[in-house]
Amino acid sequence: MERQDDTVVSLRGVRAELGSRPVLRGIDLAVRRGEVVALLGANGSGKSTAVRSAIGQVPVTAGEVALFGTPLGRFRDWARVGYVPQRTTTEGGVPATVTEIVSAGRLARTRFGLFRGADRAAVREALERVGMADRAKDPVTALSGGQHQRVLIARALAVEPELLIMDEPMAGVDLASQEVLAHTLREEVGRGTAVLLVLHELGPLEPLIDRAVVLRDGCVLHDGPPPRASADIPPSSPLRSSRGYPQPGHDHVHPHDASGAAPIRTGPLS
């Protein structure tokens, strides 16, 4: 068993409901310092709910959630956490520039919201790391989907977090921005930041990921090294039939895996 103070995110037996529908049915999940964990699964498998329960945005009906070894109810050290929500809620009715949005991510490191030179420098640096420094004064409405996502990631990086939580950071992102995001994330991981991210498919982030947790119907189906295409998953495995993750007919997404000759084994599922 890992030491408690080494674990940055810990979910134990977590159950959660949306409306009256059980979405999480006893999830165990741990992310250790410097580790990159991907949460995979079909739509509706509970992966977004799992990360949102980890940061207190979904009430937990049973089980324990802890951040940096502190139970969530008593956790106040939010400057250690950077959060990238699913890109839906960020366009308010009033114009705002890229810098104004990213500055909101720095508030946890300020006293009463007063910005000093170091805070402005951190915002600038966060924008440089996602390659958006030249758009700093542009209104966010003028950005493409991928650029918008890069701004949201800069907002999470502005606080200089030790833990980065991202909900579908690649959804609706063009290929150029996906490359930039993968590069940014690689740098961030190099600094020792732990990352917990929800992904629909591994994609360009695959080499970064230390561990994959696959959810299905609110339960953990797999927790171990990221499953590499069809080789690790026997045809009889429920993984194959679960909608969304490795789907039959989607194997060609990973054409580099010479999977045909591999023997059938239960691998990480055993």
């Binding site: 207190g56 956490v81 809620t89 909101a104 508030l107 919201g113 910005f115």
Partner: peptide, 21 residues
């Protein structure tokens, strides 16, 4: 006086909660 905090909360309430506001 609270323009940064009010901006953050009005812009994205969920994110504002995770920044500890």
């Amino acid at each position: 006086g609270l323009r940064r905090q009010l901006f953050a909360v009005s812009q994205d309430e969920e994110f504002a909660r995770v920044t500890g506001l």
